[in-house]
Design a protein around this nucleic acid. Structure first.
Length: 213
DNA sequence: CGGAAGATCCACT
DNA sequence: GTGGATCTTCCGA
């Protein structure tokens, strides 16, 4: 599909595609968080994972599961699904359902482009901090951007608390894929290469992924 | 109604 | 490399 100029909002049609396609296309995009006091925090996305929905045992929408917790997964494409995990962490997803099956993309890591000071504070870090410590990992990303369940079900868009904008184009040779993290329980789905990352990014959480796309 | 497990992170060895 | 923190959610009994 046609991708907007860098800095332009990604339209709903961008997200209304198969999750793996969206996960790959989101690499390089800018995730913008507007705080209640008006400050803008910006990350360049460097790692994503696709969750396919009903057919994917690793997905919260596996077998058509629909609960209070994951209700946002069934909102139209381009909405946020934020969940609480392990008793202390949050993770941020973008809903990508082409046909209402609960597909989503987990935003796993980003590189700070603006608001670094504020993000350090949110993370409880003081310089020098590694780039990876700031927003490398889904829970770190959420903490850096002050994201919690209050943002669950909101729509990504300009003038919203969360927005996704087009970034600079990314060459295919810069993208690597591999199995998703922490889904060993998911049977054969655990091996599916639905994790996408930029090859050279230090923010990418380990273990490093293999194959180029 | 109780138990078990989770799309993680950090400190410690 | 390993284990503990910490709590919500879900499913089976």
């Amino acid at each position: 599909m046609k991708v907007p100029e860098p800095g332009r909002p990604l339209p709903a049609s961008f997200f209304a595609r198969p999750p793996a396609e969206v996960a790959r296309a989101l690499l390089g995009a800018r995730l913008v968080r507007r705080l209640p006091d008006g400050e803008r925090l910006v990350l360049r996305l460097v790692e994503t994972e696709a969750y396919l929905g009903a057919s994917d045992r690793a997905s919260h929408a596996w077998a058509g599961r629909r609960t209070v917790r994951n209700a946002s997964l069934y909102l139209p494409a381009g909405h946020a699904y934020v969940y609480f995990i392990y008793g202390l962490h949050y993770c941020l997803n973008v809903v990508t359902n082409p046909d209402g099956r609960g597909g989503a993309v987990l935003l796993r890591a980003g590189e700070a482009l603006a608001g670094t000071e504020r993000m350090l504070r949110h993370r409880g870090l003081t310089p020098p901090a590694t780039r990876r410590a700031l927003a490398g990992g889904p829970a770190r990303l959420c903490q850096a951007l002050a994201i919690d369940r209050a943002l669950d079900g909101t729509r990504f868009g300009p003038r919203q608390p969360l927005a996704l904008l087009a970034g600079e184009p990314v060459a295919a040779a810069e993208i690597v894929t591999g199995p998703r993290v922490g889904v060993d329980y998911a049977g054969e789905a655990a091996a599916w290469p639905l994790r996408f990352a930029l090859r050279t990014s230090p923010e990418v959480s380990l273990p490093r992924v293999e194959r180029t796309v």
